[in-house]
Design a protein around this nucleic acid. Structure first.
Lengths: 150, 150
DNA sequence: AATATATGTATGTTGTGAACAATAATTATT
DNA sequence: AATAATTATTGTTCACAACATACATATATT
């Protein structure tokens, strides 16, 4: 039974159109796998992203806006995403001293543990892109960046 | 203010890791633009995808499962996606004669009109990938397909 | 033919998260 | 001091994924 993927070739699609579909397909392919893996840790991609941002800054703390700016998907409702992480004990929130409008967010020990567990058991990037040589990946990166230059 | 995107270079990321982030970023970039554009037509990406599948088969009708298999994102709750399209009058549903479990779904005239209006006013693919030469797009396609070969 | 199994669709429920608006608290600006 | 801008939260609505269940109809098995 042919899938959209398999049909791409049977229809007369221009390579640009094919490229567009390919990009979405591949990204979904990757994201689906990431999500599937993170499921084991009861984390969504968004939540995982936030934890990584927090770890990157550790031991410094991050504000809501700081996180928001760095997320892959903008338009994030950071407050409620952090709510969920806090509820799981992966993150702590305290009111900032300097600017009391702000809330300092920090990854907890538990969150750190969770992340390193994830990191240790797999290296997503290498697994998922393992079909490509490093030269190819470099080329890929160049092109993807070009697309976003628009 | 640096974004995740800009930060990629300042951190010591391997190119594979960078490739992964790049793929997600670029796909989101494209999808966000598509969504933004489709917003004008009160369509989501999922709904747009279904309409295109239906048009492709027109004047043949499609069943729920047929559509499901061809969607970019599997795991689609086709019934309720089609519900929304039906409510807007873009799609019609009738019980199948041959197999009365099935429901024949067809794009309506209004749906057709909507789609061609979208097509006429923009060619997504060419616009979005316009920074790449056709050689580059071919290369890109090869690599993206390789990734999904896994 | 009667029964069991498979299939196609619909429905119910829960949770994530996007979109958009409104509010409260605090700080900056004039 | 008064006004504006910033930060985070809250509220609401909707799309959709995930998972289970129900139900009618087809098909297979005995």
């Amino acid at each position: 039974m042919p899938t959209e993927e398999e049909l791409m070739n049977s229809y007369n699609l221009g390579i640009y159109q094919k490229g567009l579909i390919n990009l979405i397909l591949t990204s979904d392919f990757i994201q689906t796998r990431l999500e599937y893996y993170l499921q084991e840790y009861d984390l969504t991609l968004q939540q995982y992203g936030i934890l990584r941002i927090l770890r990157r800054e550790y031991p410094n703390k991050c504000t809501n806006n700081f996180i928001k700016e760095r997320m892959l998907r903008k338009s994030a409702d950071t407050t409620r995403l952090v709510d969920r992480l806090e509820k799981k004990g992966l993150v702590t929130r305290t009111q900032s001293q300097n600017d009391r409008r702000r809330v300092d967010i920090s990854i907890s020990d538990k969150g750190m543990g969770q992340l390193s567990q994830i990191d240790n058991s797999i290296t997503f990037s290498e697994r998922l892109l393992s079909e490509l040589t490093s030269n190819e990946v470099s080329e890929l990166n160049k092109m993807l960046e070009k697309i976003r230059m628009e």
